[in-house]
């Protein structure tokens, strides 16, 4: 167990190092984006101001020193000061994080519930027309890229049918009569991007659920349950889902990685103010501290989730004494 913890620490250290090195590998430095060099702004920065700026943000020091400084700040939960965005990185991230969590969390929940239900249903009716239709249509949805689905959804539901807004996360400057109104407004903006993101994820949970359910249905205790005359619902949910949910649970870390990718596309298509769009924009203006912050949060949550799953999957597993590794 201790060696395992050590290994995870190593993984986290490697991630920190990569987070630090990768943005700095890009050609150019952030001052390009503060001056007229990279943009059409009428700014010319003389050499002195430029070096002063680099010095101000600590970018003139040798890389190792910068890295140690970065680690030291991290230990104090200080993510640094954004160069282009000109504010504390932690403030910037904290403002955006709830939106991403809302979008990704809602869609994940919807996808998990729908995937489990549909997967159980398809497995129970394995080989039927319903099963085949479900498998091929859900796989078809996953084969469509998120940005394409998103664009088509905007076109159909926002532009043609005018049911939903074309983008954004809430109505700007609306004075809501009550908290309820504010909530409804946010849900109304959330609906389309969350549905697109759900559609992208649903096939994943569905297929895992279906295959482990197919396997479970063949087990003898299921046949016993049927022989005992338990109803369909009881059989499927009390025994089937319960046993089939484990593979779903152990796949969470992988799933999160996939979710990050799709979220970036969805956020950029719907102009949704989350971390994904921030990552893309920060890369475009070389804002190292912001990039590091975004990378850190995403990779730590993936590692964290993996650790959590590693430590808790036995709780989800109805059978006891499941072998380690």
């Amino acid at each position: 167990m201790i060696s395992k913890a050590g290994q995870y620490l190593l993984v986290i250290f490697a991630l920190l190092l990569l987070n630090f090195i990768l943005p700095r590998m890009m050609p150019g430095d952030p001052t390009d984006f503060l001056t007229g060099t990279a943009v059409d702004a009428p700014i010319d920065l003389d050499a002195e101001s430029r070096s002063r700026l680099l010095e101000y943000h600590g970018l003139d020091k040798p890389l190792t020193e910068q890295f140690l400084g970065y680690l030291g700040k991290l230990a104090r939960f200080d993510l640094g000061f954004a160069i282009y965005y000109r504010r504390e990185v932690s403030d910037l991230l904290l403002e955006r994080l709830p939106w991403t969590l809302l979008l990704a969390g809602t869609s994940f929940l919807l996808a998990a519930i729908a995937g489990v239900l549909l997967g159980a249903l398809a497995a129970y009716r394995q080989g039927s027309r319903l099963d085949k239709t479900l498998v091929s249509s859900l796989m078809g949805v996953r084969a469509m890229p998120a940005y394409l689905v998103g664009m088509l959804a905007i076109l159909l539901f926002s532009i043609k049918l005018k049911l939903f807004p074309t983008g954004g996360a809430c109505s700007p400057f609306a004075s809501h009569a009550s908290v309820l109104d504010a909530g409804l407004d946010i849900l109304w903006h959330l609906a389309l991007p969350a549905l697109v993101l759900t559609a992208e994820q649903i096939a994943g949970t569905f297929l895992i659920m279906r295959s482990s359910m197919v396997a479970t249905l063949g087990e003898t205790y299921m046949l016993m349950a049927e022989a005992k005359g338990l109803s369909w619902g009881r059989r499927v949910f009390r025994y089937g889902v319960r046993n089939a949910i484990l593979p779903l649970y152990t796949q969470l870390g992988v799933h999160l990685g996939f979710l990050v990718t799709v979220t970036i596309f969805t956020e950029s298509v719907f102009n949704y103010p989350g971390m994904g769009r921030l990552a893309y924009e920060a890369a475009m203006v070389h804002d190292y501290p912001v990039l590091q912050g975004v990378f850190l949060i995403t990779s730590l949550s993936i590692v964290g989730l993996n650790i959590l799953v590693d430590c808790t999957y036995r709780l989800v597993d109805p059978r006891t004494g499941h072998a380690d590794e």
Binding site: F108, L109, A174, H176, S178, A182, I245, V316
Partner: peptide, 30 residues
């Protein structure tokens, strides 16, 4: 019970951020 607690955790996953943003936007509008 375990499954139920996982389910509750999962709902909080989307519920907490929702509560945060709703409250923020409500206050901003006020």
């Amino acid at each position: 019970r375990r499954l139920a607690s996982i389910a509750i955790l999962a709902v909080l996953l989307a519920g907490i951020p929702f509560a945060v943003v709703v409250w923020r936007e409500y206050r901003a509008g006020a």
